[in-house]
Amino acid sequence: MPRPPRAEQFSPDEVCIVHVTQRCVRRAFLAGVDAVTGKDYSCRREWIRRRMESLASVFSIDILSYSVMSSHVHVILRNRPDVLAKWSDAEVALRWLKVFPGHRLEEHLAEPTENDVQTLVRDKQRLKTIRQRLADISWFMRALSEPIARRANKVDECTGHFWEGRFKAQRIVDETGLLACSMYVDLNPVRAAMADAPDHSPHTSAYDRIEAAKGKQIDSAAFDLKPIPTEAAAKATRDTPVESVRQQQGTKRANPTGRQVLRDGWLAPLPLDSGTLSSDPQSHTKGFRSSDRGFLSLSLSDYVRLLRWVAQHGNDKVKVPRSLAKTLESLGIDVSMWREIVWHWNAYFGQSSCIGRRESMQADAERTGHHWHRGQSRASACFI
């Protein structure tokens, strides 16, 4: 069964949650130490994390979970057209120009000016297209992948493809599937024997949340959502040597806003706020992420306890503690199958374009005009 079209899996016009995987094409590692050449590519993990953090501040897309592995990246994304609808035309134009400044004669002209923003605002047809793209998961992945590929090629002094192709996408259709997929993503380094616990797995969302709970802060990589005054930009162009401005821009881009943020401040909060009306988009106002809406009906402490327990026991035949079993059962998960799902994820959902309980997968297949999704029968063994 061929992979379904992107338009069937997600749309920028409706809220949907998607598990995305992007894999490196080369024998050389995406990140980590290449056992053949001995080269250390570990710094690329932070390139990718910081790029995701930057994009989280401008796209109307929530980053729920992620992990950066040696040869591939996992991200769970939720697009938010409801948040996008609250943004003014000027906001949309500025956010777009921060990521896609267009063709410029000089690198130091890449920062958008007030005139650039107003010029784009006046082009209503283009602005309509751009507004839709800011909630499009495909455009988010393009903005993530292309700069990383260019930077890696420059460091490696080579040309050609860096990623093996377009990202793989799996639509997540219920909270049960979301919890399972989120834990699979967070525990990838443990499953790969790169770490012994989520607490020791940098460049994963679990690690970021655990460190943030301790008060750990980092320099923010969020874009500074303020246009440069046109007159100031013109004066800088006339009076400042190009090389000097390039050096200043390079320093500024390392921390554009000059602020610090909790290590998970750019990620979507984990627990859902049951006291908030579902129609409220919960737009984020501090400039680090799209919204303040959570995505799971359990607390961060319960989620971390569950992660640590699965990481410790792996696929051993050890009874699940009653307190954790109640949490799983309340979400419709077969306790006896839980570790099996997380530890052998690809056997159940590796070839599926959809993740969730069998009835949810069936409903999604009917939505797209199909009779079934691959993996439905295996999903029935996992969930109650």
Rank of each mutant, 00 (worst) to 15 (best):
G332T: 10
R289E: 04
P256C: 09
R305V: 02
D34L: 04
L64P: 09
F167S: 14
E107H: 12
L109C: 11
S60F: 05
R122N: 10
A192P: 07
I137D: 00
V18P: 02
V58Q: 00
T257C: 01
L306Y: 12
R358D: 14
S11T: 11
R150C: 08
N188K: 01
S336Y: 01
T119G: 13
L179I: 09
N188A: 11
F383D: 05
A193Y: 11
A212W: 08
Q351V: 10
R308S: 09
I333W: 02
S182D: 06
P12G: 06
L178D: 07
L134V: 01
V92H: 03
S330H: 12
H19I: 04
D174I: 09
D364Y: 12
V261A: 09
A233Y: 01
E211W: 10
W372K: 14
E243W: 13
D273K: 13
R253H: 09
P227A: 09
H313M: 07
E53W: 02
R49D: 00
K226A: 14
L94N: 02
R50T: 00
A7Y: 12
R27C: 03
S274M: 13
R23P: 03
K326A: 13
L187F: 09
R191H: 05
R51H: 00
K168H: 11
K39E: 15
D13Y: 15
V342W: 03
Q132Y: 07
P147M: 03
D219W: 10
L30N: 02
A152S: 14
L84I: 06
C16V: 11
L272F: 04
G275V: 07
W163Y: 04
R293W: 06
D264W: 08
S11V: 06
F10I: 10
P12N: 02
Y207K: 00
H370R: 15
K319I: 12
S330A: 12
V155T: 13
V92K: 06
C158R: 15
H74N: 00
F288C: 09
V320H: 08
W87T: 01
A7H: 13
N315P: 00
F140H: 00
V99D: 00
R259K: 15
Q312T: 14
L225R: 12
H284D: 14
R104S: 03
A325Y: 01
P147K: 02
T230I: 04
W345H: 07
L120M: 12
R104Y: 04
